[in-house]
Write a protein that binds this DNA or RNA. Structure first.
Lengths: 255, 255
DNA sequence: TGAGCTTACTGGTCAGGCCAGTCATAGCGG
DNA sequence: CCGCTATGACTGGCCTGACCAGTAAGCTCA
């Protein structure tokens, strides 16, 4: 068949890439588990039959991908790291900076993710998960006096709990990433503006409403409240003429 | 204030990282635009005051991040690449393989993204965008005889058009990434299974229904149909006892 | 037994070199 | 005059060997 005779573009594979692939696959396969150590650079040199600079290039790439970490003088060699979405966050942040993704799109995306997570949580949550959410909200209430630092942490914990109850770690990770990206863009403005007991109390109330909807198993309401809450919270950072898509999400279930 | 006196953990910054940062920021700032060239390695050595292995480590990291590309013998030096979500895809794929994200979660996420995109598109689409979608559907219809290869391309094009009309490039990119991850997991099974005119015709009909809902401006219907379509298409790849969360999404707007 | 020193490692960095490839250009033949 | 080819000055890919500043384990000595 002619399909099988098609040729793909080739690109020369560098030595260091082969090394990266081997180590990467060993980690993915589970042959190398987090916490375990790689042989020392000089030992890898003999195992791979490449020179030290080449081995080091591979290690630098793996390190930049968040798979391993080298520490000078460590006699045990580079450490295999547990998975972390940090790499995803980095790429996502890059996407935002590069492709000039607007604040509006970012928040729109958060509304979608958070709304979906709440909706799923409303349908799938167990009793224990519900009580975890209640506890995080209690922490939020206590943290109002402690300042935005503490409050923010509890806020994040609540959203994590919702995402967990929604049975979807992708939403969890993406939401985390997008939240990070949003904060990176408005970090200076937000630090003081949100350090207000009034705002925090309002935010707390919104969270409580979401929790109520989740408890009631009302996915639509949970999603709607989540989205509206986010819109009210962040709309101020979006130019007025770009708020259309956001409002479309707020109205989503009502028309 | 005591907040200001808090110390953060420090980690020794390697030389190559400083180089990566500088080049990275130059790209982000726009000082270096895609297509432009970096100085040669030996020139960078003098500019950064580092040795060639160090400069090369930095270049390898940038290359692995998809920011630049080095070609042997190229007298113009490494090329600045246009942004591509390939890095995101790589990280997302890693997330899937590592954190053992299940097929169910992947598809659940696609249903959310695609549904949201359709819903947004229904509310925000312009007439031109509508006609673009119509054209891609026409291409799909024509491609049924040409085999799944062509059909798949047109399929992707339709979803792209919807995402564009939804005014959210994040959805676009994420959807693309997740679709890639799904295909990577089931590529072998899907190649022949989907190469069936019956399946393609059914898929085409589903797409037409989505388009109708978008044309009518009915966001809810567009989202519901999108999700249902994806569920029917992919449910076979998900173990039965994991389909609960997916069904929760299908029923989402009906209860 | 415990505190301090020695030593054998580790990774970080450098200098310099060889090779194969690419490309522009100079010089050739037409 | 034009087109082709050969040359040479580059490029990146890779290697060798070396030095340094750390770490940590083991040894010595009080």
């Amino acid at each position: 068949m002619s399909d099988g005779a098609q040729f793909r573009q080739v690109s020369p594979v560098r030595l260091y890439q082969r090394i990266v692939e081997q180590i990467e696959q060993a980690i993915v396969r589970g042959d190398l588990k987090p916490g375990q150590r790689l042989p020392s650079e000089r030992e890898l040199v003999t195992q791979f039959g490449a020179s030290r600079p080449t081995v080091r290039e591979a290690l630098r790439v793996l390190e930049s991908d968040g798979l391993v970490r080298s520490r000078p003088g460590d006699p045990n060699g580079p450490e295999i790291l547990p998975f972390s979405p940090a790499g995803l966050t980095k790429q996502m942040t890059r996407l935002v900076q590069f492709d000039n993704v607007s604040m509006a799109e970012l928040i729109s995306f958060r509304m979608i993710l958070d709304g979906s997570a709440s909706s799923l949580a409303a349908r799938l949550r167990s009793e224990e998960e519900l009580s975890v959410m209640e506890r995080t909200i209690a922490v939020m209430a206590d943290a109002i006096e402690a300042g935005y630092e503490e409050f923010g942490k509890a806020d994040v914990a609540f959203h994590e709990a919702v995402a967990v109850a929604g049975r979807n770690s992708l939403i969890q990770v993406c939401n985390q990433v997008v939240r990070g990206a949003v904060l990176a863009l408005i970090s200076d403005k937000v630090a003081h503006a949100h350090n207000s007991a009034t705002l925090m109390r309002e935010s707390l109330r919104h969270h409580q409403e979401v929790l109520e909807a989740i408890r009631a198993g009302d996915g639509l309401a949970a999603a709607r409240i989540s989205r509206r809450k986010l819109y009210e919270y962040y709309a101020g950072y979006v130019p007025e003429n770009e708020r259309g898509p956001l409002l479309a999400l707020v109205d989503d279930e009502e028309s």
